[in-house]
Design a protein around this nucleic acid. Structure first.
Length: 264
DNA sequence: ATGGTCGACTCTCGA
């Protein structure tokens, strides 16, 4: 018997400052799995009890003030891994990458480094990070593994994913190097689920706080993604951006991005 | 316009 399975991703920009959005959202949607980025909290201060009281299990890894990822689930969380399984793995990587298995589905939650500027070492780290996640997928999973990779990838893959492609060309989140890095990983067989269900420009997950009236002026970026292996893409039924979470009181600069599946 | 980002943290950095 097939049943609906929903998964969402949300860069919260501090989980403790966003509980007023996150908790009502999960109680309203009863989402099965929620991937969070930029939790900005040390593990000992993560609000586990708040999730537990809402009926969600949660796994997480963070750092003081920066980065931090978490996966919350209504179901049992199995086989959790933090960071990369390579020789370069660092505490920062562990606060940017978390993966587990839920209801037989592999869930990979990534907060890809932003890169700061093209000439900054952080940008090389970003490109290397994309290569490393590709290698992680190749080492650990088969193309037919039911897997959903989501998160804040800090990459707008196509011109329609940014509000002004000509003007923004060369930005750390929109340039030929990151596009190539993105499509290298996608070449393993991933489907961009949001794009599949929502063609055309004007769909954004991120509006910079610093752009005055950015939302009203449609000055956004589609840098958060829900990507699925062929196995999972075949079961997908839809994907949407919830702009209400971006328009809420004291919002994150990102919106929630969700996708749904019919799993057996 | 008398504003004009936000969060964590020690005051300035990162996004």
């Amino acid at each position: 018997m097939a049943r609906e399975f929903t998964i969402a991703t949300y860069n919260v920009n501090s989980i403790r400052s966003r509980l007023h959005i996150v908790m009502p959202w999960i109680e309203k949607t009863r989402v099965d799995v929620l991937c969070l980025q930029e939790t900005k909290v040390k593990d000992e201060d993560f609000p586990i009890e708040v999730f537990k009281d809402a009926g969600y299990n949660v796994v997480f890894k963070g750092q003081k003030a920066y980065n931090g990822v978490a996966i919350a689930s209504r179901h049992e969380i199995e086989k959790t891994f933090y960071g990369f399984d390579d020789l370069e793995n660092s505490p920062e990587d562990e606060a940017r990458l978390i993966r587990c298995m839920i209801q037989g589905v592999v869930v990979v939650n990534a907060y890809v480094p932003q890169g700061r500027s093209i000439d900054n070492p952080a940008f090389q780290y970003k490109l290397r990070w994309c290569q490393r996640i590709k290698e992680l997928f190749e080492r650990n999973y088969m193309p037919q593994t039911p897997l959903v990779w989501c998160g804040d990838l800090n990459i707008a893959p196509q011109p329609e994913d940014v509000y002004a492609p000509e003007e923004l060309e060369g930005h750390v989140c929109y340039n030929s190097m990151v596009r190539k890095a993105f499509y290298d990983v996608m070449g393993l067989g991933f489907t961009d689920l949001f794009r599949r269900f929502n063609p055309g420009p004007g769909h954004y997950t991120f509006f910079d706080y610093r752009v005055p009236n950015g939302i009203k002026r449609h000055m956004g970026w589609r840098i958060d993604h829900v990507l699925a292996t062929e196995e999972m893409a075949g079961l997908a039924t839809g994907s949407y951006i919830d702009m209400e979470t971006r328009l809420a009181d004291k919002p994150s600069d990102h919106a929630v991005l969700a996708a749904s599946f019919l799993i057996v």
